[in-house]
Amino acid sequence: MGKQHDEQQVEKHGRKRGGPGLFQLVMVGLVVAAVTKELQKDKEDRTWHGTVAGFVPYEFRVPTVERFRERVWDPDGEHVLSPHVFGVGWTLNLGRIVALVRHKVDDSREGDAPA
């Protein structure tokens, strides 16, 4: 399996397995930037949530059920993407996605109904 297998893996995935990809390196950089941003603040001013790189949200507070519901299951929310419950970046608001699908299904059923 040696060299030929490694070459096939590089050809198939664009890089060898085992090493971090560009996405992982960017994410680590964003985490480091967010933590550094918080540590540069006075201790009493640290909130452990905000944005880094101008628009990427970060959240390092202990997750709560309320925050989980707000970000992962909020059918009435206006956004499909919301900040992670914990970490850097975004998560899908599954509640909003389900609500949009239900709305689309209901609309298609109304169109099929006889007048």
Rank of each mutant, 00 (worst) to 15 (best):
D74N: 15
E78M: 01
G95D: 13
R69L: 12
P75N: 08
S108L: 09
L81C: 01
S82A: 11
P75F: 11
R61F: 01
W73K: 10
D112H: 01
G54E: 06
V105Q: 02
H103A: 15
I97C: 13
E78S: 11
Y58N: 09
R69S: 07
H84S: 15
E66W: 02
E66P: 00
R67L: 11
D106F: 05
S108M: 08
W90S: 06
P75D: 03
E78P: 04
S108Y: 06
L81T: 07
R71S: 08
I97W: 10
P83S: 06
Y58F: 15
R109E: 13
S108G: 00
D112W: 00
P83V: 09
V98S: 14
H103I: 01
L92R: 12
F68E: 12
P63Q: 08
V98Y: 08
L94T: 14
A113K: 08
V80A: 09
A99Q: 10
G95F: 07
E110T: 09
V101L: 13
G111R: 13
V62T: 13
E59Y: 09
H84E: 15
G77Y: 05
E110Q: 13
R61C: 06
R67I: 01
F68C: 14
R67G: 00
A53S: 08
G111W: 05
I97R: 03
R71V: 14
V52T: 03
F68A: 13
T64Y: 09
G87H: 03
G54L: 06
V101W: 07
D76Y: 04
R96A: 11
W90P: 00
V56F: 09
A113D: 05
Y58D: 02
S82C: 08
F55T: 01
V85H: 02
V88N: 03
V98H: 11
L100V: 00
G95A: 12
V52M: 07
V85D: 06
G77N: 05
D74R: 10
F60T: 11
W90V: 03
V56Q: 01
T64W: 08
N93E: 03
R67A: 14
V56K: 03
F86G: 02
R102Q: 14
N93A: 11
S82T: 15
G87E: 11
V80K: 13
V80L: 14
G111F: 02
V85M: 04
W73F: 15
V52D: 05
H103E: 15
A53Q: 07
L100I: 00
G54F: 07
E66S: 01
F68H: 10
E110C: 04
G87M: 07
G87L: 15
E110N: 05
F86S: 07
F60Q: 03
Y58L: 00
N93R: 14
P63M: 05
V52Y: 03
V88W: 05
G111E: 12
L100N: 11
W73S: 03
D106C: 03
N93S: 10
E70P: 09
G95K: 07
G89M: 06
G89N: 12
D76N: 09
D106M: 12
H84C: 14
D112S: 06
V85Q: 05
A113E: 12
V105A: 10
A53Y: 12
V80G: 02
D74I: 02
T64I: 07
I97A: 06
F55K: 10
G95I: 13
G87P: 04
T91R: 08
D74S: 12
R69D: 00
T64D: 00
